[in-house]
């Protein structure tokens, strides 16, 4: 368990207040498009949290969480459109489908560990796109498909586009907060201690009576379910699913965000996404700058998420192996596998 110093705790408090104020003010100052983009960022916390649960708390390296985001999105789209289920039910079914697919990966993860699991999940992420093209009924094939159903604000909120955008924004924030709270409780509960015990030494954990099979499979399905929820909320926000959004790079950026934020810390996942947003905004600003020659080319690179996160991943491994959330924590123990 990480010990956080009093000073860090204060910093965290300040950060929390800042984020809350920011979230509160956003609907008043932004257009519907901006609000949608910000909602997408908030949703992405869930996928990052999913990786964190599997890798940070469970010790199972997962490079393929984009796959579960995709499964969640495709399933939600299918249930809400083809089966005409109400939204909340469809979202739940999306989570369940993603969790089940997560359990499917969790089962081999019982025996396949460390770098071999990383290999398997990476291959899974690479294969997901061609695979989803093969089942156009669910995924819309190469070009993707539009979802007919809309997640609209109830009539008493008015029927302007802004009202719907704000409604979706608030809904997604509430869901994300709920998921964060639930995860925080989970990792600090008996089950969460079992996960961490398993990560640090599975033989010792087994001796203490922890059921290895059950804990591993459940950990992986919870983490996949969180990623699936992110996918489901994406459909809530933009009624369109396409395999285009679930490339390998996407999966790896989610993983990189989790590592950069700090594995084994819920706060770290939020921090990772905040850092990603900050760098994204900075990159966008800089890429507009007219430098000359190589300089402007370099600035343009900063706009590429994959590049910034690749560099960040390497740099942090050297400087702060425990991620942004690990800065200032007093503990010599290693996280991860």
């Amino acid at each position: 368990m990480m010990r956080t110093s009093a000073r860090m705790r204060q910093l965290q408090g300040v950060g929390l207040v800042l984020i809350t104020t920011w979230l509160f003010c956003l609907p008043f100052v932004s257009t519907t498009t901006e609000l949608r983009q910000h909602t997408q960022i908030i949703i992405s916390v869930l996928a990052v949290l999913g990786v964190n649960i599997a890798t940070g708390y469970g010790g199972m390296i997962s490079l393929g969480h984009g796959v579960f985001v995709g499964v969640g999105a495709f399933a939600t789209g299918y249930f809400v459109d083809e089966m005409s289920l109400p939204w909340l039910l469809a979202i739940s079914m999306g989570i369940v489908t993603a969790s089940l697919s997560g359990a499917l990966v969790g089962i081999p993860a019982l025996r396949i560990k460390g770098i071999h699991l990383a290999l398997l999940t990476l291959c899974m992420a690479i294969v997901f796109q061609p695979l989803s093209k093969r089942f156009p009924a669910f995924t819309g094939g190469v070009s993707g498909k539009a979802i007919e159903a809309r997640f609209e604000a109830p009539i008493w909120l008015g029927d302007s586009r802004m009202a719907s955008a704000v409604y979706r924004y608030v809904f997604c924030i509430l869901v994300v907060l709920f998921a964060l709270g639930l995860t925080w409780n989970l990792v600090n509960s008996r089950a969460g201690r079992a996960m961490r015990a398993l990560r640090d030494n599975d033989t010792a954990a087994a001796i203490y009576g922890i059921n290895l099979v059950r804990t591993r499979v459940i950990t992986f399905s919870i983490s996949a379910g969180l990623a699936g929820l992110a996918g489901a909320l994406q459909v809530v926000l933009v009624p369109y699913v396409s395999q285009d959004n679930y490339s390998v790079q996407e999966s790896l950026v989610v993983y990189a965000t989790a590592v950069i934020g700090g594995l084994g810390s819920i706060w770290g996942s939020v921090l990772g996404v905040v850092a990603r947003t900050g760098f994204g905004a900075l990159g966008e600003r800089l890429s507009g700058v007219d430098g000359f020659g190589l300089v402007s080319e370099f600035f343009e690179l900063l706009d590429e998420q994959a590049f910034v996160f690749g560099v960040g991943l390497i740099a942090l491994t050297f400087v702060f192996p425990r991620g942004l959330a690990g800065i200032g924590t007093k503990n010599k123990q290693q996280t991860g596998s």
Partner: peptide
């Protein structure tokens, strides 16, 4: 081991986006 995985994944992302750029 995790650090080495991170570095190779970071390298994958960096080289890929450099080439795309």
């Amino acid at each position: 081991e995790l650090s080495l995985v991170n570095v190779s994944i970071g390298l994958l992302l960096v080289i890929n986006s450099l080439m795309a750029q």
